[in-house]
Amino acid sequence: MLNLFTGLFSFQFSSIEDLDAMLENGPWFIRNNLLIQKKWNPDVNLLKEDVGNVLVWVKLHGVLVTAFSEDGLSVIATKLGTPLMLDSYTSDMYSKEGHV
């Protein structure tokens, strides 16, 4: 539900597990706009916050085989910001190739 006064969306979940799954499986977009999620509690200020840092998942295309290693991908990602981790698919693919 969108609150037109604050510009905030609110969602209700049938279980804590569903809420946690939504928070963990993002990022989420509405009409190609990033939806920044935050778990509500009674102390949360419902005014829009200025966002300084946002964690994003970046999909890299055309990575050379010679750069396809944890270190190589980290160097590429460093040009975009501070890399935190490989996603599970890339990590699994990298492991199956026998490089780890």
Results as ranks from 00 to 15, higher is better:
23 L>W: 10
93 M>E: 08
35 L>P: 03
54 V>D: 01
83 P>S: 09
66 T>F: 03
91 S>M: 04
57 W>N: 08
33 N>A: 10
69 S>L: 03
26 G>R: 06
30 I>R: 08
49 E>W: 01
59 K>M: 06
3 N>W: 04
30 I>K: 11
66 T>Y: 01
76 I>D: 05
17 E>M: 02
23 L>N: 07
24 E>W: 00
3 N>H: 05
27 P>R: 03
78 T>A: 15
34 L>N: 02
92 D>Q: 13
15 S>I: 07
41 N>H: 14
37 Q>A: 15
10 S>P: 00
56 V>K: 10
41 N>V: 04
17 E>P: 00
23 L>H: 11
65 V>R: 01
18 D>Q: 14
43 D>E: 14
64 L>T: 03
30 I>Q: 06
59 K>L: 07
20 D>Q: 14
85 M>H: 04
92 D>M: 06
61 H>A: 12
13 F>A: 09
46 L>F: 10
46 L>D: 02
27 P>D: 02
32 N>I: 00
58 V>N: 03
64 L>I: 00
62 G>A: 10
66 T>L: 08
56 V>P: 01
42 P>T: 06
29 F>E: 15
8 L>I: 15
19 L>Q: 12
47 L>T: 11
79 K>Q: 15
24 E>Q: 13
92 D>Y: 04
90 T>Q: 01
18 D>M: 09
84 L>Y: 12
87 D>H: 02
13 F>K: 04
40 W>E: 02
41 N>L: 09
32 N>G: 00
42 P>S: 11
27 P>Q: 03
62 G>H: 12
49 E>H: 06
5 F>N: 11
9 F>C: 13
58 V>Y: 02
8 L>V: 14
24 E>H: 07
84 L>A: 04
86 L>E: 12
99 H>W: 06
6 T>L: 12
63 V>K: 01
79 K>A: 15
29 F>Y: 15
87 D>R: 03
42 P>I: 10
11 F>K: 05
4 L>H: 08
2 L>K: 09
48 K>G: 01
54 V>Y: 08
30 I>Y: 13
94 Y>P: 00
62 G>Y: 08
76 I>Q: 07
52 G>D: 13
57 W>S: 10
2 L>R: 09
76 I>F: 05
24 E>G: 00
21 A>S: 11
55 L>R: 12
65 V>A: 09
43 D>Q: 13
83 P>G: 10
74 S>N: 07
46 L>Y: 05
78 T>Q: 15
61 H>Q: 15
7 G>S: 02
3 N>Q: 04
83 P>T: 05
27 P>A: 06
11 F>M: 14
14 S>G: 14
11 F>G: 08
50 D>Q: 10
25 N>G: 06
30 I>H: 11
50 D>F: 05
8 L>A: 04
